[in-house]
């Protein structure tokens, strides 16, 4: 019945005026259903990796499709009891977090007072940051307060960030700083 309704003759008849001009025919052309030549499914041979949306705290599950190690698609995981495959606009845009020409990919360094960045080696920058942490810690460490309380800490280093990152990062981060005696460790939870 559906096919019949969409039959071309019926179509033009319901369109009314169409048939009024003689010869309104198509050479080899009909409006009947056909299988279109569509582009190949992008994720046909993709590997699927389970992941989680990195934006808000709902914890929507996602599926990442990769072909030859390149991300081709990210969409909601329909199995998830939280999101059942749905996503919000940010979640739907996770792909562009990864595949994006604006991404920063090099290490930058600005000398004190300089007016420009310099691109530097990753290992050099790590060494330098390590030196600076040690210098500041050694210069500001407090073993005991004037009132004699043992505190073994330095208030002079501030570590910020963690709420957008993994539990594992948070553990490593707080263990690192607390191990060194740094207590000013904060993340987005308070702001």
């Amino acid at each position: 019945m559906l096919v019949g309704r969409r039959d071309f003759l019926r179509l033009t008849a319901s369109a009314g005026a169409g048939t009024a001009i003689g010869g309104l025919v198509g050479l080899g052309v009909t409006l009947a259903p056909a299988v279109a030549r569509a582009q190949e499914l992008r994720i046909k041979d993709a590997k699927t990796t389970p992941s989680i949306c990195p934006f808000c705290s709902v914890g929507c599950a996602t599926l990442i499709h990769t072909v030859d190690g390149k991300i081709v698609n990210i969409e909601g995981d329909p199995r998830s009891p939280h999101n059942e495959g749905t996503l919000c606009p940010k979640g739907a845009a996770i792909y562009q977090l990864h595949v994006n020409p604006n991404r920063a990919t090099t290490v930058l360094h600005r000398k004190p007072g300089a007016s420009d960045w310099e691109v530097v080696e990753l290992e050099w920058a790590m060494d330098r940051v390590g030196e600076l942490i040690k210098k500041t810690r050694d210069e500001t460490f407090i073993e005991k307060l004037p009132n004699g309380k043992l505190v073994n800490m330095t208030p002079a280093v501030f570590a910020l960030g963690g709420a957008t990152l993994d539990n594992e990062f948070n553990h490593v981060c707080q263990k690192f700083w607390r191990g060194l005696g740094v207590v000013a460790i904060e993340n987005q939870a308070r702001i």
Partner: peptide, 25 residues
Amino acid sequence: VQAGCLEVCPTGAIVRTQFDTVVIQ
């Protein structure tokens, strides 16, 4: 179900699919 775009398309790029949807190739 009666698609104007599909009617006028002079190249046959617009087709009706087996799902009764209208697709531009």
